[in-house]
Simulated scan of single mutants.
Amino acid sequence: MRLLKLQVFDYSHFVSLPLAIHPELVSKLVGFQNSILGSSDACIDENPDGNSDGDNSEDSAQEQQLGNISVELEVADDEESVKVDVSVRPLDSNAPKENEEPKSSNKSDLKIGKSVFIKPQTFHLTVLMLKLWNQKRVDLAAQVLKSTSSRVLDALDNRPVFVRLKGLDLMRGSLAKAQVIYAPAEEIDSENRLLHACKIMIDAFVEAGLVIDKDAKSELKLHATVMNARHRKRGKKGRFSSFNARAIFEHFGSEEWGEYLIREAHLSQRFKYDENGYYHCCASIPFPENISS
Rank of each mutant, 00 (worst) to 15 (best):
E46W: 12
A185T: 05
R246F: 00
I262A: 00
S93L: 15
L110V: 12
S27Q: 11
A176S: 14
T122G: 06
I181Y: 06
E101F: 07
K131C: 09
H13P: 02
A95K: 02
M129C: 07
H251G: 02
E24H: 14
A208H: 06
I291C: 10
Q7T: 07
K28T: 04
N94G: 14
S60Q: 09
V71M: 06
S70Q: 11
I291P: 01
N134V: 02
S108P: 03
D77W: 05
S190P: 00
E256G: 03
V226S: 05
R89L: 12
A229D: 09
L125P: 11
F9G: 02
F249V: 02
G277S: 01
A283S: 13
D41L: 12
E207D: 12
F117D: 03
G253Y: 04
D92H: 13
E250Q: 13
L145K: 03
V75F: 11
G253H: 03
D92K: 04
Y260V: 07
K111C: 14
C281R: 15
L91S: 15
G277D: 02
S284A: 11
R2H: 13
A224W: 01
K131N: 15
A183Q: 09
K177I: 01
L3T: 09
Q65S: 15
Q7C: 00
L6Q: 10
N106Q: 14
S115P: 07
L132N: 07
S12W: 06
A76Y: 02
L91N: 11
N290I: 08
V152P: 04
L168N: 01
D45C: 00
K221P: 00
K166G: 03
N94R: 08
E219V: 15
V152Q: 03
I188K: 13
R193H: 11
S40F: 10
Q7G: 06
S81W: 06
K136F: 03
T225S: 13
R164W: 01
G50K: 10
Q33F: 14
S35H: 09
L140F: 05
R230E: 13
S149P: 01
E63Y: 13
R2V: 11
S190W: 01
H231N: 11
G113N: 06
D78A: 08
